[in-house]
């Protein structure tokens, strides 16, 4: 349900950027969504479209790029995919530093 809250934060940034860049219409928002965040893309998109109504972002395309979870092993230093088990898939170490999967990042905002 925090999809709505995240979208509200997203719109704060959209408004800030559009003022700064003097944009009157937002056409596309490119968003990186990490799998760890447990955000449902469909709900996120629905929340975005609802929030965009009657704003400069109405009809803007929300492009969601899902970022899978990756960890860097502190023992063997290799980078591995993390699927449910947070172990290094190369050496079996549990000492993993999660380097991808937590993203809630606006990659870019397009408009005119």
């Amino acid at each position: 349900m925090h999809e709505i809250a995240i979208v509200n934060h997203l719109f704060e940034i959209i408004n800030e950027v559009s003022k700064k860049e003097n944009l009157s219409k937002i056409s596309q928002v490119n968003f990186l969504l990490g799998e760890m965040q447990q955000i449902v893309p469909e709900i996120f998109r629905f929340a975005f479209e609802s929030a965009a109504e009657n704003t400069i972002a109405q009809n803007a395309i929300l492009n969601i790029e899902i970022v899978s979870i990756k960890g860097q092993c502190n023992s063997c230093n290799k980078i591995c995919d993390v699927k449910k088990v947070f172990y290094c898939s190369f050496c079996g170490s549990k000492d993993l530093n999660i380097i991808n999967g937590n993203e809630l990042i606006i990659k870019s905002i397009e408009g005119e």
Partner: peptide, 9 residues
């Protein structure tokens, strides 16, 4: 590139 939760952070 900007984290949506920057302000919260």
């Amino acid at each position: 590139m900007r984290n949506v939760l920057d302000k919260n952070q």
